[in-house]
Design a protein around this nucleic acid. Structure first.
Length: 845
RNA sequence: GCCCUCGUGGUGAAAUUGGUAGACACAAAGGACUUAAAAUCCUUGCCCUUUUGGGAGUGCCAGUUCGAGUCUGGCCGAGGGCACCA
């Protein structure tokens, strides 16, 4: 074959891998395991470039580890419950299952075309009964352990999707999927008691050595641990309220007490429910809470209760009690003590309502006349104007000391608070895992007996109803448990529950009895390398970490707490955006240019197109490139090569047609090189030449280093370098053994990246297409000459080649005598010199 | 507002962790081959010098060091996360 025919070759090897079950994994305790997992896709229809990048990164790693002799588990499955299926089914009047299965089959074919080394025997789909049956069992087990409960509370209601959203799914007051403005609504909901594990989830982060710090910081902030103190403030006034409890992290500023503020949902609000002005105020608050946050710009508003709170450290001092919009009921006790001088929100509030601002902390470099005016002082310093607290150092001394005093006088208690709230898992949707719960006539909660699991979703259901279709499915809803008439729970589980344990299921996907098999998970878990988008930094990763602890809880057999040993978050794939004269998005394949300046619509060159910034590919901006089309045009190896080449995997990458073409050409050039190698090998020359061997061994060293560090873009550069070197060296005959040995090594190191091509070349030479990862021949890379950099007063003046390990004096002598370098030191007096062995010398003159 | 990350040619980026800045690739310009184009290959890449050479240079300003893209402090800019969390 003259030109490399990727179509024939790729097809051939994909069939070969399938037929030979090349990537099927089994427990083998004699081998070290490596569990490589990429975040499984939602089957939305077709794969996109983000998938290509994600799965190529994982595939390179899997193939490399496998060549190194690890027993690799590299599975794939489908996160197949969720809203889009339900919406698409509604539109096309079919069952979500049918829509989902069709998409899975399309996407599976597409993924196979990428040549991924996936163990397809382990394929799972979260919407299958085999899968969600076990999820229902987990739910019941958690329920029995007291980690699931039901409570009535305010929820984030998405009026478009008509479903409840978790706090994490509300972005800027809008639903993460629908974009609708989220409303507050009171509903009875199921919750996972994730806050029970706040402390452990926080501490566990310290053990995750191979996680990006960025993700750990985000989770840490999300869990939001704070140290403080609860204080019971005595209340005076004409209402039957004796005291209000507050949580504070700054008890040391108590002498700056200026007002007490409570949430409008605080229990004391019941005394104001008849007060029309209060009702008006409450409405005002709910507006600023979720909606026009930006317009209100965080304006603080309050409603005076007429009550007074007594300062526990100075019972003479009495301050007004307000309802305030910036106090949240679901954090602390829904009440705060206001110290305007040292908290910006309190200061804003105090200035608005003319409340006193008393400075009680001064910075170290100021004196006691220091006064807070328009900016609260929150930094370190010394306590002032605070009676017996004066002189304490802020924050270390002052906070602990004040808490001690308050505890001693029984006015307060040390307390640790978390921001993390329990995980609401109820969704009013059809296409999700049914919750195995029923209610009898008296509304008692009953669990569905295990022998009746799975609770299957009803088929043939009318989705075109308002609200939850399951609620309207009378045949399905009404059941008997132990002979009693019951009604099923019609909520389904949040799809984040599905993805919180799928990595366990991959270890024993066909086990009918249990969701996981202990022997299997003890061998395979944890996931050694998890790879996916940073957008899941909090939700999915935190939920999975929780879920392991929840199974672990009161279960001696289950040993896993952290599911993901290593985490890698890859960047997005971006493309320029285009808009026509009417400001409509235009897709890249409709756009053309001749001079890189003027872009126009292909079919109609008079129609100009505006070029916008490069953004992550999305259907809404029409700046997507279809991977299947690209694979058909250039081949999977070229796509893999390109998607790895231009940027470090953790950063965003620009899609570039030119870059894609360059990768394609490179593979063609490699094929020419292959043919050259083949001819040289067949020549059977005796011309010994170690240069190639030295080069290849150095190359392996570099590539090992870059593989371990995920510098995949540098590896591609290394391959180009290798090509440039080899194509020159092959101009003369070289002995067969050196050539063959080193060419095999070269083909081995390129095979994780372009596996079809490497396999084809190896088999063309009648060699095993699945090679071991090459060892470095240490004798070859042990160089006996080195090149020294010569610096004069810190500036580079030249280089000199000499024997390795020579002394400083010898080197200076050499520089003085060498033809090229002697003028550097001519008639100069050396004051001092710095010598870095085998590397550099810096001479001061 | 708070927290995190990052600023290197026309562009995407390298730099073995304090030791030759710009590997590798894209784009551009010039050249070779060709009747011509495409493809391919070679050269160039900031400033001064015809060349040999020399100089500046990693967002800006200072500092530490024999030596700083890399470390420290301050400023400017970009991106991401969180947002009344008391």
């Amino acid at each position: 074959m003259d030109r490399y025919n990727f179509e024939l070759v790729e097809n051939k090897w994909q069939k070969y891998w399938d037929k030979n079950k090349s990537f099927i994994s089994k427990v083998d305790t004699s081998k070290e395991k490596f569990y490589c997992l990429e975040m499984f896709p939602y089957p939305s229809g077709k794969i996109h470039m983000g998938h290509v990048r994600n799965y190529t990164i994982g595939d390179v790693l899997s193939r490399y580890k496998s060549m190194k002799g690890f027993n690799v588990l590299h599975p794939m499955g489908w996160d197949s419950f969720g809203m889009p299926a339900e919406n698409a089914a509604k539109q096309n009047n079919l069952n979500p299952k049918v829509w989902t299965e069709k998409n899975i089959s399309v996407m599976k074919t597409q993924l196979k075309k990428l040549g991924l080394s996936i163990d397809w025997d382990r394929e799972i789909s979260t919407c299958s009964e085999d899968y969600y049956k076990h999820q229902q069992l987990f739910f019941l087990s958690l329920y029995k352990k007291g980690l699931v409960y039901k409570k009535e509370n305010y929820v984030n209601w998405d009026p478009i999707d008509e479903t409840v959203l978790a706090n994490e799914q509300v972005i800027d007051g809008k639903g993460w999927r629908s974009g609708a403005i989220v409303q507050r609504k009171k509903l009875s909901q199921w919750f996972f008691n994730i806050s029970n594990f706040s402390e452990e989830l926080l501490n566990g982060l310290d053990n995750l050595k191979s996680w990006p710090n960025k993700v750990k910081t985000m989770q840490k902030n999300w869990i939001g641990k704070s140290f403080g103190c609860e204080i019971n403030f005595k209340i005076q006034g004409n209402l039957p309220i004796n005291a209000i409890k507050c949580y504070t992290t700054r008890p040391d500023t108590l002498f700056g007490f200026s007002f007490l503020a409570v949430s409008v949902d605080h229990p004391i609000s019941k005394f104001f429910n008849e007060n029309t002005q209060f009702i008006k105020f409450k409405n005002e608050c709910s507006k600023t809470g979720t909606t026009e946050e930006s317009i209100a710009q965080g304006e603080k508003i309050g409603f005076n209760t007429g009550l007074f709170a007594v300062n526990p450290l100075d019972t003479e001092q009495k301050v007004p009690v307000y309802f305030a919009n910036f106090v949240l009921m679901d954090y602390g006790f829904g009440a705060v003590f206001g110290c305007p001088a040292h908290d910006q929100r309190d200061l804003d509030f105090a200035l608005k309502y003319n409340l006193p601002v008393k400075t009680v902390v001064m910075p170290e470099n100021k004196d006691e006349t220091f006064k807070v005016k328009k900016e609260a002082y929150t930094g370190p310093g010394v306590i002032i104007n605070s009676n017996f607290l004066n002189g304490l150092k802020v924050p270390n001394q002052s906070i602990n000391k004040t808490i001690d005093i308050l505890e001693e006088k029984q006015l307060g208690k040390k307390k640790i608070n978390f921001r993390l709230k329990d995980w609401g898992i109820s969704r009013q949707r059809y296409w999700g895992c049914p919750i195995p719960i029923a209610y009898d006539k008296d509304d008692n909660v009953l669990t569905v007996p295990e022998d009746q699991l799975p609770v299957k979703l009803p088929e043939n259901i009318d989705l075109n109803v308002k609200g939850n279709p399951l609620d309207k499915a009378e045949n399905w809803k009404n059941i008997k448990i132990n002979g009693k008439d019951c009604i099923r729970e019609t909520d389904t589980l949040d799809t984040f529950v599905d993805s919180s344990w799928y990595f366990l299921r991959f270890c024993s996907p066909k086990n009918k009895k249990h969701g996981y098999d202990l022997d299997e998970i003890n061998y395979w878990m944890p996931v050694d390398q998890y790879i996916g988008g940073v957008e899941h930094a909090i939700l999915h990763l935190l939920y999975s970490r929780f879920f392991m602890r929840a199974i672990n809880y009161k279960n001696r057999n289950f040993k896993i707490t952290e599911p993901f040993e290593g985490l890698f978050t890859q960047g997005m794939v971006c493309h320029e955006t285009y808009k026509d004269e009417n400001n409509n998005w235009v897709s890249p394949d409709e756009v053309e240019t001749e001079d890189k300046k003027n872009f126009y619509i292909k079919k109609n060159p008079s129609k100009k197109v505006k070029v916008g910034p490069s953004e992550s590919m999305s259907k809404s901006k029409k700046n997507t490139i279809d991977p299947e089309e690209i694979i058909n045009n250039y081949g999977a190896d070229s796509v893999r090569l390109f998607i790895l080449s231009d940027s470090p995997p953790e950063k965003d990458i620009q899609w570039s047609e030119q870059g894609m073409v360059a990768s394609y050409k490179f593979i063609q050039k490699l094929w020419m090189l292959h043919k050259k190698f083949k001819i040289r090998i067949e020549e059977n020359s005796n011309n010994k030449n170690e240069e190639i061997a030295v080069f290849i061994n150095q190359m392996i060293k570099k590539i090992n280093y870059n593989l371990e560090k995920f510098n995949y873009n540098v590896i591609v550069a290394n391959l180009y370098e290798a090509y440039n070197f080899l194509s020159q060296k092959l101009n003369v005959a070289i002995d067969k053994k050196t050539l063959l040995d080193n060419y095999i090594k070269f083909l081995s190191i390129i095979s994780p990246i372009i596996p079809h091509f490497a396999s084809e070349c190896l088999s063309d030479l009648k060699l095993n297409p699945l090679q071991k990862w090459p060892e470095i021949d240490k004798n070859l890379i042990k160089e006996d000459t080195v090149e020294y950099v010569i610096q004069i007063n810190g500036k580079k003046k030249g280089t000199i080649k000499c024997m390795k390990d020579i002394s400083e004096e010898e080197l200076i002598e050499k520089i003085k005598n060498n033809q090229n370098t002697k003028k550097i030191l001519e008639s100069k007096k050396i004051k001092k010199s710095f010598f870095v062995k085998n590397r550099l010398i810096n001479i001061l003159i």
